[in-house]
Design a protein around this nucleic acid. Sequence first.
DNA 1: GTGAAAGCGCTAACAG
DNA 2: CTGTTAGCGCTTTCAC
Lengths: 344, 344
Amino acid sequence: MARGEKRPVTVRTIAEHVGVSTAAVSTVLANRHEERRLAPATVEKIRAAVRELGYVPNVAARRLRAHDPEVNHHELGILTTFEAPLFLVSRVLRQVQRMADARTGPGRRFSVSIDMFHAGRLREMPGLLSASRFNGVIVTNTLPEDDAFLAATALPYAVVVLGRRLPNHCCVLDTPGEIGRRAAEILLKADSRHPVVLTPALLTQSTAERAEAFVAAVRGQEGRDSARVIAAGFTPAAGAEALRAHLGAGLDCDGVFAVTDGLALGAYQAIKDAGKGIPRDIAVVGVGDHEHADFFDPPLTCVGPSNEAIVEQAVAQLFQLMGQRRGKASEIFVPPSVVRRASA
Amino acid sequence: MARGEKRPVTVRTIAEHVGVSTAAVSTVLANRHEERRLAPATVEKIRAAVRELGYVPNVAARRLRAHDPEVNHHELGILTTFEAPLFLVSRVLRQVQRMADARTGPGRRFSVSIDMFHAGRLREMPGLLSASRFNGVIVTNTLPEDDAFLAATALPYAVVVLGRRLPNHCCVLDTPGEIGRRAAEILLKADSRHPVVLTPALLTQSTAERAEAFVAAVRGQEGRDSARVIAAGFTPAAGAEALRAHLGAGLDCDGVFAVTDGLALGAYQAIKDAGKGIPRDIAVVGVGDHEHADFFDPPLTCVGPSNEAIVEQAVAQLFQLMGQRRGKASEIFVPPSVVRRASA
DNA sequence: GTGAAAGCGCTAACAG
DNA sequence: CTGTTAGCGCTTTCAC
């Protein structure tokens, strides 16, 4: 009970408990008791009570109080799942901050923070619905449950959704169909006759469409479906294991389209373990621009919009939305580019 | 001026501007005008004013208002620089969240967010000094300027510092000396006669000590200093360039100790470009546990505490500090472990 | 259909 | 040395 399990303790609780005023408590909490010359005994009693009652300051109240009325504070959030790799997120963050900095001045300030939710449980995030946390957010890495929640909800602040298509929101999207098609093109042109697509078991909208388009494009040209190699997750380890099993079973494979970054890394390992050369025996194509694609051995050919380009659009939209009231829904497509490196 | 460049507009500004009450404005902002049956004309006028005046809701005020007095809300932050790589940070976040989840219940809730500051400018972070943002923070990736600020300041909430030694704070540290020594040991045992250390130009406390200890250990055994190869930054590209220059100049090198993860990746590229084999011609040792060390080709031998272990300590400390008042300074050392893989 | 007023928790100015 | 008070900006009864 010493930790305030029931009614949270406030400065007032403490003040009453000790028999002093709230001001005295506040002073002690701010370590200003010297300049206010509180009696050491009082200070000690207050400290004891604070500890004993398990006081936790209410930051919202402090913030409101401390707020400088001359400056307009914007609170921006990047919302993503714990489960997602943080890599795209860090770019989003940097880009948001860059744009925020450019708009910061006397009278206008921004805070940007990354907040994480448990995959599928976005709706439980405190302050989301009451709009009591953010003035604007970029949401990414959502699961279908989260998408359903978003689709059914009009959040009363600026929202930009990354990589998902939701009718009532501003969405920034890649073009998965085109990505899959281009990937197929690259592999087929590299004389791959038996290209496979490496995907995680749990597909997102995007990854599913990429794989779909890839298979369709191969079918169109080769007249048969390319194999799908299904990894348990999207980690390199999962990708390696899945492809290793495929190769180990002696199945045909002279080209791999890995629908996410991590899987490509895993594919490399499986291929090398099998004693095959990249791209001599098996060509590999990845998606997006992996931070380290240039440092793969051999460097990885990628197709997809650069994260840079996506993020740039998203952030621009966010600021535009915040400028107006009532962000209208819109879909912004960022076309893929192809970065040819040695792997295909 | 339409964006509220001067005195920020509040609900009250708008109310006065339109000639209605603040309640009406609030209702419209919350999209509750239907159920309150406001006159459509009024709603429109309010909306127009909101847009025209560039109203930005004050989230602190909303939060205070929305606050459920039955629940005790703890706001936790992970403070890091924009410039730092995010994967260590993401582990911190996950770990903090895991522990927070374990302590969440009716009456107690946590929010965890990552906040970034510009390297060297931690002190400018709004709300840090006024304690109006966090109930507790983990600070990491600081620059010397930031350390100086922290050393001179007693923040009135729980603070845990990662990887820096500050007399007045609770610090969780690796043991850079031991890391450097172990790295030297590994390379020397692998019969490297001319090991070099690859470091960024801007050294942190930790990286400097790692390099120092490495050089000293080599000197102790071989009787001469090992070369320092200085990269412009800590990116793979910088590491590759520096080592390429070193090898290109025909200087001796049959072992590399890369003091950060990214540099190791760059080293691989430079070595392969030079037509050398790892570890046959040049052995490589990295630090910590790189997310993808297993997927390097060949897999990278690492020495250092697992981030896991460091983070675990840090988070435990943070919660302990928040339990008490007045966190006392302390130093917690996390010993390194060695993960031998094929690279050395 | 709309307004007045209370109050979330906190701190600083002022008054003893 | 300490207490009283006003008010940060917002929303939600309650009253008209």
